[in-house]
C-alpha cells in the first residue's frame, strides 16, 4: 500500500459512527437527519434498545451498518467502543466522525467539513463542544462546566495499520482511540452543540440520580459536578449562531 493512501488530500469518504440506546424520543432523529446532509455513511451500534431506536435508525438510507446488541454492554464501555470502532473501520472510511445521539455540528462546521478532511497535513480535528442547558438557546459556563474551553477530538483520519488503542475501562472510555494523540492534529474553533443537558428540570434530576447511582463515590467523575446538575441558577450564556 502506498504512502499516498496513508494521507489522501482529496476524495475522502466520511463515515459517522454512533453508539445509541433508547434514543427514539430524544434527539436521534434530528441528529441522523443532520448527519445525512454532510456525511457519506453512518455506522451505529445499538446497545439493546427497548424502544423504537433501531427502527428509526433503519429509516435513514445512509445508515449502512447497524449492529443490534441483545444484551446491554453499557457497563463494559471499553467493549462497546471497540465494537463500534471495528464496525466503522470495516466501511473503509477516509475519515470517521464520532457523534453522540445528542450532538449537532454548527452550520459553519458542516460547511468546512470537506475542507477539514481533504488535506494531508493532520490526522484529527478538535472541536469546541458546548453543553446546552435546560433548552437549546443557552449553554452553561461556570467552574465545573467548561468543556468548550478546551478541544474535543471527534473527527479522525482512518489510517489502516496504525496502532489503535482504547484503555480497558468500564466507564469514561475516550470516544476514539487514545493513540490518535500521537498523530498531528488541528484544533479548530468550530463548534458542536451538545443537547444532552438541554432537558427539563425533571429530566435533569433523573440524570443526577442516574449518575449518583452509577458512580456514588465519584470514582469515574467528579461528585461536585454531579451535584452541580441540581444548581438552581446555573450561569447560562446565550448561543449565537455564526455565519
Amino acid at each position: 500500500m502506498r504512502n499516498e493512501t496513508v494521507r489522501k488530500a482529496r476524495g475522502n469518504r466520511l463515515t459517522a459512527m454512533l453508539q445509541v440506546r433508547n434514543e427514539a424520543d430524544k434527539h436521534l432523529e434530528a441528529v441522523l437527519q443532520d448527519l445525512t446532509d454532510f456525511v457519506d455513511e453512518i455506522v451505529i451500534v445499538d446497545d439493546a434498545s427497548t424502544d423504537g431506536t433501531v427502527k428509526l435508525c433503519r429509516s435513514f438510507a445512509k445508515v449502512s451498518k447497524l449492529i443490534e446488541l441483545k444484551q446491554s454492554s453499557f457497563h463494559r464501555e471499553w467493549e462497546l467502543r471497540l465494537l463500534l470502532w471495528n464496525a466503522a473501520c470495516e466501511t473503509k472510511p477516509g475519515w470517521l466522525l464520532s457523534v453522540d445521539a445528542d450532538e449537532f455540528y454548527e452550520d459553519k462546521a458542516k460547511a468546512w467539513m470537506r475542507t477539514l478532511i481533504d488535506q494531508d497535513e493532520y490526522d484529527w480535528v478538535g472541536f469546541r463542544f458546548f453543553d446546552f442547558w435546560g433548552g437549546t438557546t443557552h449553554y452553561r459556563e461556570d467552574r465545573l462546566w467548561q468543556i468548550h474551553r478546551r478541544h474535543t477530538r471527534s473527527l479522525v483520519r482512518y489510517i489502516p495499520g496504525y496502532y489503535y488503542f482504547f484503555p480497558r475501562m468500564d466507564h469514561h472510555v475516550p470516544r476514539l482511540p487514545l493513540t490518535y494523540a500521537a498523530l498531528p492534529g488541528f484544533l479548530s474553533e468550530l463548534r458542536v452543540k451538545h443537547y444532552g443537558w438541554a432537558v427539563s428540570q425533571e429530566e435533569l434530576y433523573r440524570k443526577y440520580l442516574r449518575y449518583m447511582e452509577r458512580d456514588p463515590n465519584g470514582e469515574w467523575g467528579s461528585l461536585e459536578q454531579y451535584r452541580s446538575i441540581l444548581d438552581e441558577n446555573p450561569n447560562l450564556v446565550p448561543w449565537k449562531e455564526e455565519a
Binding site: 496502532y163 488503542f165 484503555p167 487514545l178 493513540t179 494523540a181 500521537a182 498523530l183
Partner: peptide, 24 residues
C-alpha cells in the same frame, strides 16, 4: 513496544510518533 506506546498515551506523553511508533 506496544505496551510502552500505550503507556505514553495514557500519561499524555504524546510527542512520541517518531521516538516510539516509528520503531515498529
Amino acid at each position: 513496544l506496544s505496551l510502552s506506546f500505550e503507556q505514553m498515551m495514557i500519561k499524555e506523553f504524546t510527542d512520541c510518533l517518531r521516538t516510539h511508533y516509528r520503531f515498529f
